[in-house]
């Protein structure tokens, strides 16, 4: 019996109808759909047809301000650049920082992918992708390999990123020291002095209590040997992907009004100790759908008597592997 057969609510064609995996953008003509790309809907002037807003929603003055912040962020990797975050038409905490960064960098020839929890079809990912399809008309995709800009919440795709790509993270609390020191005036000084002892103490307290570091996500990293940075609440499983990554990584925190960046091919080191080196989560079983090992897995509760299955959180790579296996 296949692993998918264990779930009473998955039905026959389980791999396509998992919760959170309903294909959206379903009405798109087939050739583009097959490539995962949704055709651009720009008018002759390059503005999104009928949206009534500027290209990618933001006015040009706001884009300039954000663009300047992005350039500074790239020049000082890991440093949080203050920016005058605007009120967006979605709530703070729902990706306004990432949305503003994406809006500021996006051009007509970009292909946009949006994921939340690794999946293209979680409601907030759908909502943000729709927002950009409507206001910018750029092509969208679910395929990691086809995207030039990927906006993400909580995951880095399993498919290795390439030089032509930009990964935009949505960040809730950009300050890695915030829960050690709530005051902005204090944390700013700590960064200025590169005084990160408190962070090491905190991690070491974990070790003395539990025998290992008990931080599982938003695991702090040191960027290019200088700033300690919050990688956003990605599981620490994804931290190694940030190191020496060929893609540009941009981070936007709307409510907290900060932008920061990791340029391509930059050293990103997860904080650790010689006797307690950094280690990522390991899953004992493969993905129940595509059989992959070494991917981050979501645990899906299949019934009310302890039934569980583990499936890839990255829906694109999972679907690609399932499709390849069926061929």
């Amino acid at each position: 019996m296949s692993a998918t057969g264990m779930s009473p609510f998955l039905g026959g064609s389980a791999s396509r109808e998992l919760p959170g995996r309903a294909p959206d953008d379903a009405q798109v003509p087939s050739p583009e759909r097959d490539r995962g790309i949704v055709a651009s809907v720009l008018d002759a002037a390059g503005n999104a047809r009928g949206s009534g807003y500027n290209f990618a929603y933001l006015d040009e003055g706001t884009k300039r301000m954000i663009r300047r912040a992005i350039l500074k962020a790239i020049a000082v990797p890991g440093y949080q650049v203050p920016f005058a975050s605007r009120e967006m038409p979605m709530p703070y905490g729902w990706g306004t920082g990432g949305v503003q960064v994406t809006a500021a960098i996006l051009g007509q020839s970009d292909v946009l992918k949006v994921i939340d929890q690794g999946a293209d079809d979680t409601t907030n990912a759908v909502s943000i992708r729709r927002f950009f399809a409507k206001t910018s008309g750029v092509a969208t995709t679910t395929r990691t390999t086809e995207a030039t800009v990927i906006q993400t919440r909580h995951r880095i795709p399993e498919t290795p990123l390439t030089e032509g790509q930009i990964l935009v993270y949505q960040v809730p609390i950009p300050e890695p020291l915030r829960f050690l020191e709530p005051r902005e005036t204090e944390t700013r000084q700590l960064h200025a002095l590169a005084e990160y002892g408190a962070m090491h103490v905190k991690l070491y307290e974990d070790i003395s209590r539990h025998g290992h570091i008990a931080t599982t996500y938003a695991y702090p990293v040191e960027v290019a040997g200088r700033y300690v940075m919050d990688p956003s609440p990605t599981p620490k499983f994804d931290n190694p992907k940030m190191d020496d990554c060929p893609a540009l990584q941009l981070f936007g925190a709307g409510r907290e009004r900060r932008i920061y960046a990791v340029p391509p091919y930059t050293r990103v080191r997860s904080l650790d100790f010689e006797d307690h080196p950094f280690r990522v989560q390991e899953f004992t079983q493969p993905c129940a759908l595509c059989g992959a090992r070494g991917h981050y897995l979501d645990e899906v509760v299949t019934d009310d008597s302890g039934g569980r299955m583990f499936i890839c959180s990255d829906t694109d790579i999972c679907e690609t592997r399932v499709a390849e296996a069926a061929r």
């Binding site: 500027n54 290209f55 884009k63 663009r67 960098i105 996006l106 007509q108």
Partner: peptide, 8 residues
Amino acid sequence: VHDAQGTF
């Protein structure tokens, strides 16, 4: 709009 974006 797009010339500024391309330059940026």
